[in-house]
């Protein structure tokens, strides 16, 4: 390369090469930006590799369960991603973006694993299912609203997910256990982030307090659905793959209650919505979320990106 002589090469950082032989420099051309993960964290690509080698394959029940929690993360990531470039502070652009990325990462792992039962990839499941085939709970599809609504939603989600993933680390299904072991560390930060903001908003100004109270009122109707047992969870609980969602409730109530008390907030006395997300019954919101998420992939079926 003719002019690739002084600064760029010598300084050793920020090289402009693209790692392709003939394109002028160093690196592994097949390396992708997602391949570098600290430590030995489990990546969706690792799970896909195990699947392709025939090392893991979930039963239909396990796959259906993985689909539920995968869809929760995917839909929430889609919602949270909207905040990037719109947050109240740059620090929150980064924080909410990070939480979205974590949720998307968990979703990719769970969906990749679920798909193995039916010969489908994470992208087949994310981009080519219709509304009634999604298994996410209603809380995850609730609109972002203002920052207080987003924080109220995230507070409930992260305390719920923390309990769930903590218990799933002991799952008899090794893949579910491994994904959860990674996820729980990340969700612990989400818990801290949302709890700190609940305290700040509740104890900040009159306006912020009014907004967080309203935020909780809007999202609290979707709490019960998270802890509903059904035939699938009963079968899987007996097999030790998961625990009954209802068994997570007491600890969720205790830990969220501590923060709510410190923030001098009441649990909103609002009726609980019927839910039904786990059976494919969704609110009006999901259709719009999917329309946006799936539009490009569906314009080019079979294409690789």
């Amino acid at each position: 390369m003719t002019n690739h002589d002084t600064d760029f090469a010598i300084e050793g950082h920020g090289d402009i090469s693209v790692g392709v032989h003939g394109a002028g420099a160093s690196g592994d051309g097949s390396a992708s930006a997602t391949r570098i993960t600290p430590g030995n964290a489990l990546r969706p690509e690792d799970i896909a590799l195990e699947i392709s080698r025939g090392q893991v394959k979930p039963s239909d029940d396990v796959a259906e369960f993985a689909l539920r929690i995968g869809d929760d993360g995917l839909i929430l990531a889609q919602r949270l991603g909207h905040w990037i470039s719109r947050a109240p502070e740059l620090e929150e652009d980064i924080a909410l973006g990070n939480i979205a990325l974590d949720q998307l990462g968990h979703a990719r792992s769970f969906l990749t694993y679920a798909g193995a039962a039916w010969g489908k990839s994470e992208d087949d499941l994310a981009y080519f299912r219709r509304e009634h085939e999604f298994r996410s709970a209603h809380l995850f599809e609730q609109p972002n609203g203002d920052f207080a609504v987003t924080i109220a939603r995230q507070f409930i989600v992260s305390f719920y997910q923390y309990q769930l993933y903590t218990r799933l680390m002991e799952s008899t299904d090794a893949t579910i256990a491994a994904i959860s072991a990674k996820a729980v560390k990340e969700v612990d930060y989400h818990r801290d982030h949302s709890a700190q903001w609940v305290l700040r908003l509740a104890g900040g100004t009159d306006e912020s307090r009014a907004r967080i109270i309203q935020g909780f009122k809007l999202v609290w109707p979707y709490v019960d659905e998270l802890f509903e047992d059904d035939e699938l969870t009963t079968r899987l609980a007996e097999a030790g793959v998961t625990v009954q969602p209802s068994s997570l409730r007491a600890e969720f109530d205790r830990l969220t209650g501590e923060i709510m008390t410190e923030a001098d907030l009441q649990i909103p006395g609002v009726p609980q919505a019927l839910g039904g997300g786990r059976r494919g019954k969704h609110s009006e919101f999901l259709g719009y979320i999917l329309a946006e998420m799936q539009v490009l992939a569906r314009e080019h079926p079979g294409a690789s990106w």
Binding site: A33, A77, S85, G97, L101, L104, R108
Partner: peptide, 19 residues
Amino acid sequence: WITRAPSLKRKSILMAKVQ
């Protein structure tokens, strides 16, 4: 393009980049 990224891997990379 974050909400419309055509694969979950690309969505994840794009989010990280904008972040």
